[in-house]
Design a protein around this nucleic acid. Structure first.
Lengths: 235, 235
DNA sequence: TGCGAAAAATCATCCGATGTTTTCTTCCTT
DNA sequence: AAGGAAGAAAACATCGGATGATTTTTCGCA
């Protein structure tokens, strides 16, 4: 890709992991030694290590050493949080479309395989939403309802993806336009479908739920502008 | 999160972008000046910049300057390629489940809104697959068929996600177990559904197509071990 | 044996200097 | 005056060494 020494070092270490020579939890040689092995200075090596830390590939602990992370895909997906947060109005719509697809998929699976304990968790969460006192509490309970559904579906990477596209920034941009009573009613319909193990009903209710948000966003794109700070903020 | 100066600097620059004070294409102050503004050394600032380069947030050009990237979500998603490639067998199954969900969604949309030109592109790609001479050519034509469908659906972020979970490594691990003739026949059924604008038929054919792969993987997880290099490789 | 202090190991940060690439300026030629 | 080439300037890339901070290990002492 690039021919800088730092990028080369990143590629080399990644290849060592890909090939299995370095495995999760393994410790890297100390900075000086690894830099010598890779043929670059400690400063440049540190840049490479720092970049891989940002991507959750490595973990450096002062006084201890630098280790290969557990390479958990779900955790690495979270590094895209910033990308989602700074996306423009058009991308928000695309994210919402993806969210609708995921939620539809999840609702169907949850209706088919939910346990009694799952159902009780959902009910408790639904009660909390209906009694939420603050805006933040509402948003938290709403988010948790959907995360519980995702967990029932049993694909942690999909859960992580859903949390990504349902992130607080995207959600906050939209939520202020919502009516709590209506959101509660829609959740109740989803819940009813899942309680009855009615896959089609759960999916239909979820589709309606997310589409309500999506349709509003499509109709009011100007409300989605990335929030700007007033001039004069400190660096 | 962390209290290191480098991580602080990353958060500060990200916040400047989030707030709109720095926008795509903007140029950052020169290293020395920005380091002074943020209260750290040039080396530490360089680590922060390098980390954001890895995340496709910044672009540094020697002799010119450092700029905010276009912040295209699709490009930033590609930084997860490594995460997908090093995932273990269980994660491959999870990725395939996500791929099936996406492909199902895409097939339905493509059947509904494809143009005549779209159909011709798909037909051409299908012909190439059926005539592919090498393993690489087969894999390329197969991948392109699915990417064309994704592009018809019209959500570039979803296209990028599909390319991520359908990446060459995951695919190569699975493809060697496939029968070209059968893959061709399955593509043909998807194509027929799309040509007829039959949403249900296209989705059903696609579901069968991906499920064949998924079912095989679930039945033979041991074949999915991350490829290991023999001991003795350099470094 | 148990505990605390000293020592070692390791990453974090800083400084200054030099190399490389790109861009801008200037001046010469036509 | 236009064009271009040589030089100067600006900016990132890399390097080596030095110092600080944190964790781990060692070792002596009670």
């Amino acid at each position: 890709m690039s021919n800088s020494k730092v990028d080369l070092a990143i590629s080399l270490v990644q290849e060592l992991i890909r090939s299995g020579e370095l495995r999760p939890g393994d410790r890297l040689p100390v900075e000086a030694e690894l830099a010598a092995q890779l043929g670059l200075s400690r400063n440049s090596l540190r840049e490479a290590v720092r970049a891989m830390q940002a991507m959750r590939i490595l973990e450096a602990r002062q006084g201890d050493g630098t280790y290969i992370s557990d390479l958990d895909p779900a955790r690495m997906i979270e590094t895209l949080r910033f990308a989602v947060d700074v996306s423009g109005p058009q991308a928000v719509i695309w994210f919402l479309e993806i969210r609708r697809m995921i939620e539809l998929h999840i609702a169907g699976i949850a209706a088919a395989k939910r346990s009694e304990a799952d159902l009780e968790r959902l009910n408790a969460c639904h009660r909390e939403l209906s009694q939420a006192a603050s805006f933040d509490a509402m948003m938290e309970a709403d988010t948790r309802f959907h995360v519980i559904l995702a967990e029932i579906a049993g694909n942690p990477i999909l859960t992580s993806l859903l949390e990504l596209v349902s992130g607080p920034t995207v959600r906050a941009r939209v939520w202020r336009q919502q009516d709590l009573a209506e959101v509660c009613a829609e959740h109740a319909r989803v819940l009813a479908g899942i309680a009855a193990r009615d896959v089609d009903a759960a999916k239909h209710a979820m589709w309606t739920h997310i589409s309500g948000v999506l349709d509003w966003v499509v109709a009011h794109p100007e409300e989605l502008e990335t929030p700007k700070s007033p001039p004069g903020s400190s660096i």
